[in-house]
């Protein structure tokens, strides 16, 4: 069995100085949508494209963002719904149709700061399972300051969804292990715990978080869950927000010893770099499922880039075999 997904953290300068065959950005109403594009003005990009949220296509903030992105050279646009993956598959298959097997690794850059997780999961699904050429994907996340006020924390859970390519082996494995990625949602993890009824429960917390007090806030918000469901914290693991490779490694450490007996369901809350790490686990392990619920917030929030970046490169070798 071969491991063939290599996850490395990258520095800011390396990321800006690289050349990319394909760059995919997302455009929504968040101000930070344009931040990464603004850093890339001097970078060589062969094929730039923007995935644009159809749901908010008339939002003035989004229109403004798209204009700015256009000014930065991102004028190719694909408009799609946040959970539409067929269009993503079609777009990526089209782009990669003529890549010759055996030549240099194909380099992709994805800014997933405001991107629907369905989209980048679909891309990873295709590249990992159905594409024969070596690819190097650089994922960039621009950190933001979240207004942790009651308005922001006032949300309702929506439908339960499974990430494309991450359905795991829940049909044939009789036991379930849950890994709950904890964020600022107090009741979500508990709702999912009631839904999944796992035989084994682990939790993962972002520590350190993107701001100094985020770790403690997350611990407080999830206090009950940590105490009651995570055996008073014994089953809680900490992973830094700034390193997807460390987080992925921590997940592998949890997953490897139990993957013969259990189907592992990763419940996705928490910061986006952790979502990326867990999506990678869902894609690269046969029996890992990624589950989430979409929040319904009563109003949109102003999420600006703080300037910090989390940059990760994922190398997928050809002839993939899943773990």
């Amino acid at each position: 069995m071969k491991h063939n997904i290599r996850v490395n953290d990258l520095s800011r300068s390396e990321f800006i100085n690289n050349e990319y065959d394909l760059v995919i950005l997302a455009s929504g109403y968040e101000p930070r949508c344009t931040y990464v594009a603004s850093l890339l003005t001097g970078t060589r990009i062969t094929d730039p494209i923007v995935f644009s949220y159809e749901e908010s296509s008339t939002d003035p903030a989004q229109i403004e963002n798209e204009k700015t992105l256009g000014d930065f050279g991102f004028d190719q646009k694909l408009s799609l719904n946040h959970n539409e993956v067929k269009k993503v598959y079609q777009a990526i298959i089209e782009k990669l149709k003529f890549i010759a097997v055996g030549s240099e690794p194909y380099k992709i850059l994805i800014d997933y700061s405001s991107m629907s997780r369905n989209w980048y999961a679909a891309i990873l699904n295709y590249l990992f399972n159905f594409f024969d050429h070596t690819v190097e994907i650089t994922f960039v996340y621009s950190c933001a300051e979240y207004p942790l006020n009651s308005g922001f924390l006032d949300f309702e859970l929506g439908d339960v969804k499974i990430l494309p390519g991450c359905q795991g082996s829940s049909i044939t494995k009789s036991k379930t292990a849950g890994i709950f990625m904890l964020g600022f949602d107090k009741i979500g993890p508990l709702s999912f715990h009631n839904l999944l009824e796992p035989n084994l429960t682990y939790g993962m917390l972002s520590a350190p978080g993107s701001l100094p007090d985020y770790e403690q806030q997350a611990r407080d918000i999830n206090g009950q869950f940590i105490q009651h469901q995570l055996n008073d914290g014994k089953n809680l693991l900490c992973s830094p927000i700034f390193s997807v490779s460390q987080t992925f490694e921590n997940l592998c450490q949890l997953i490897r010893p139990i993957k013969e007996e259990y189907n592992i369901s990763i419940v996705q809350f928490g910061p986006k770099p952790h979502l990326l790490a867990s999506t990678l686990a869902g894609i690269s392990f046969k029996n890992v499922s990624c589950i989430y619920s979409e929040y319904k917030r009563s109003k949109s929030h102003d999420v600006k880039a703080s300037g910090e970046l989390v940059i990760t490169t994922i190398t997928i070798n050809h002839n993939p075999t899943k773990n």
């Binding site: 069995m1 014994k234 089953n235 693991l237 450490q253 949890l254 490897r256 010893p257 993957k259």
Partner: peptide
Amino acid sequence: WAYFDNNGWITADNSR
């Protein structure tokens, strides 16, 4: 014997 986070020490396994 092998050690993994949160699983502690377990017997080594050839396939893993």
